[in-house]
Design a protein around this nucleic acid. Structure first.
Lengths: 270, 270
DNA sequence: CGCCTTCTTGAAGGATCTCAAGAAGGGTGG
DNA sequence: CCACCCTTCTTGAGATCCTTCAAGAAGGCG
């Protein structure tokens, strides 16, 4: 454990938090001062297993990490793909018994951060508790959209949607044409994420490539010539990613200035 | 808004919280004292619409409530089914822009609880913040399992799994034979939840009935003659529901007594 | 009694899976 | 530098599951 030494990697996580929550200088410093332990993890190997109590959370520094659920026949289903800056199992702070495994999709670097440290920081800074809670809910929004995608889309939609999601998450709001990003994932893993078979993912990708909607060289680089075409194919609406939301104000009592929109929309039709 | 008057309904929500979190007398009273507004909601009608800012959360008092996502063609997908005692959109406290709609599956009674009230209580009692955060994560666990179920199961598994889940959530850990519970849901809604068509849900249910695995009279009452048979058909393992977990200790600094198991299992294979 | 929702049934078509085998890279050791 | 292996990608053909479309039966409710 080397406090402060992983400062730059924690910074990316902090950025993620402050993009949606307001944190004071002191609170930001508390995040950056979290102790951590760097680790390289190989792909196709659970670095957080299923059904155990963990005492730390994992921050992704480099590479992609998948959350895997599985049924009893051993069929695996990826329920989330985490990118650098994500705390992949932040939820374990309040729910230490793992309900899914974590596995790197390609070689990855992670930071293990002890729960005790997070809990200590959170107890001292309630605003950090709120920021972490909110961060978990963003992941939950993505998960929710994943259900819709897997439950209601055909193969083409599912694959296109996933590519769209990763484009936005990895590149931010991209320009409308000629988007490039690194997406080191195998077709088998793509199949585990979309609930398809590897064979069918292959055919689906070929079809998308043939139509010029996606270019995916073997070198893990995805190119999207026309964003609108892919978004249409994937029936993709980026709102659920909560990318462009203003930071929320802090937990606290009545704030006269708070959510003026709500007063009009909230109670809906009744 | 009538403080205290909805005490008994809030009690059920409090029970849900205290089953997994430790709350002091004072904190419990703070929950029970939340102001609220009772409302009857009709089925097949969004009482929380999509894509608006809300200023309150909804506690289910009676009936079943579905969270609906949808794609642009209007195909709806249920991403969660909430039962009495659930705060269906607790997450809206930290993320007021709705990413899915709420709709009663049959006539339901709800309590609308202003965010401001919840935020005030949470600011005063950090332990409540933790309890609410944890509660949200239980819903996320269910959602995660839902992805696995929809992504990797065939029709029979999906339907059986959902029935299993609802049996446990509505009846607690049930006995092994002759389980009865009320499940007022149409086959169309079941189809929206499992990502199937109503026609195929119908055939799947018939098949389960023919085999004697499920009895489902028209009167909304489900009977499960042999739990093990249904659990096998649905490949169901109730661990993810976190039903029988001991309450977690409160957020705070180092607790010597905390999570002794973790020290052994945590770092896994490396 | 008549309407409306929900459930049920049939038949045909399509999307996806399964099984099986070959091609293409990337890496390693000789 | 080549030979080999192993993973990943690709292709084909048949089987299966699920959907679609269409229509009729069964309740609930005014």
């Amino acid at each position: 454990m080397t406090p402060f030494s992983n400062h730059p990697d924690l910074k990316r996580f902090l950025d993620r938090l402050t993009s949606r929550s307001v944190l004071s200088e002191e609170e930001q410093l508390a995040i950056l001062s979290l102790p951590s332990h760097v680790e390289q993890v190989q792909s196709n190997r659970d670095f957080v297993p299923l059904g155990v109590n963990v005492d730390h959370a994992c921050l992704i520094v480099a590479g992609l990490v998948g959350r895997f659920g599985q049924n009893s026949e051993g069929n695996r289903q990826i329920t989330a793909i985490h990118i650098p800056g994500d705390m992949a199992d932040l939820h374990s702070v309040v729910q230490p018994m793992t309900g899914s495994a974590l596995q790197a999709l390609s070689v990855a670097t992670i930071l293990r951060i002890p729960h005790v440290a997070i809990r200590t920081v959170v107890a001292r800074h309630p605003a950090i508790a709120e920021a972490l809670w909110r961060d978990c809910m963003v992941d939950a929004s993505i998960l929710s959209q994943w259900v819709v995608n897997v439950g209601r889309g055909d193969a083409r939609e599912r694959v296109a949607h996933l590519i769209c999601e990763m484009a936005i998450r990895l590149r931010g709001s991209p320009r409308r044409t000629d988007i490039l990003f690194d997406f080191p994932i195998t077709q088998t893993q793509l199949a585990d994420a979309t609930g398809l078979t590897p064979v069918h993912v292959n055919r689906t990708l070929q079809s998308l490539r043939r139509e010029g909607i996606v270019e995916w060289s073997r070198g893990n680089v995805v190119r999207i010539p026309e964003w609108d075409a892919l978004a249409a194919a994937g029936d993709f609406d980026p709102d659920y990613l909560q990318t462009n939301v203003k930071p929320q104000q802090r937990l606290g009592p009545v704030d006269a200035d708070w959510s003026p929109v709500a007063a009009h929309n909230a109670h809906g039709p009744h």
